[in-house]
């Protein structure tokens, strides 16, 4: 199998480059991460990438494969056009090879206060929800923060410091939609901004690439609907 992989070593003075690799590897039933591990083990131990759970749960191995943001661990090798081009997630600073600096991404995530805000005294056991209220959170809580959506969003590419990006907005809506949360007003106040929210133009790259099959564009639409309802 043939691969073309983005290489960058911060300790050398060289510029980032694409390196070609060829390895005997049966793609049957294997994922991109398997090939990366085989390359690192067999050909080039300096090749650097993040991975942890290797089954699409931790979200640490988001990479760009043949122009598409994916989780390497759940993307089948079969059917990929060769040489398989693997690059780091777009628009984030590269630390080394396929490892990007996610600081900006997490900063936006922190900004939406991704935790329950409820000032009432804590109940003895738990805060109850009806099955319907709980169902509101489906399609929101499953996000693993891999960054595939945000780094595929052109609005994020143009304004990465100020547009929160689909992942943070999805999480923002996850707590607005939570029946136990009492801060939806403040959350909407924070989001009502030409940059933070309204840079989203419904391009829907986020929906296209989400490895968990979530729909951030729909969540953003629901935030806008709530803002309209509040204003009118």
């Amino acid at each position: 199998m043939r691969f073309r992989i983005y290489r960058y070593d911060p300790e050398s003075i060289g510029k980032p480059r694409m390196q070609d690799y060829e390895i005997e590897f049966d793609p049957q039933g294997k994922k991109v991460l398997d090939a990366l591990i085989a390359l690192k083990d067999g050909l080039d131990e300096s090749l650097t990438f993040r991975r942890s759970c290797r089954e699409g749960v931790c979200g640490s191995d988001g990479v760009n494969v043949n122009g598409r943001n994916v989780l390497a661990c759940v993307t089948p090798l079969e059917g990929l056009k060769q040489p398989i081009e693997i690059r780091p997630l777009p628009r984030l600073p590269v630390i080394r090879d396929l490892i990007v600096d996610m600081a900006q991404f997490y900063q936006h995530y922190r900004a939406v206060k991704p935790y329950l805000i409820n000032l009432e005294p804590e109940p003895e056991s738990e805060r109850l929800q009806s099955p319907e209220e709980r169902a509101e959170l489906d399609g929101l809580w499953e996000c693993i923060l891999c960054g595939c959506c945000t780094t595929s969003c052109p609005s994020f590419w143009w304004n990465p410091e100020r547009f929160l990006g689909p992942a943070a907005l999805l999480q923002g809506y996850r707590f607005i939609a939570d029946s136990r949360d009492q801060a939806s007003g403040e959350r909407l106040d924070f989001l009502e901004d030409p940059y933070r929210l309204f840079r989203c133009h419904g391009i829907m790259n986020c929906v296209e690439v989400c490895p968990k099959g979530l729909n951030p564009t729909q969540a953003i639409g629901k935030i806008k609907t709530l803002l309209v309802k509040r204003a009118l």
Partner: peptide
């Protein structure tokens, strides 16, 4: 100030 600019919605709606 932690709030948004409170703008953007009007133009989006228009």
């Amino acid at each position: 100030q932690v709030g948004g600019a409170h703008r953007g919605l009007d133009l989006w709606l228009v």
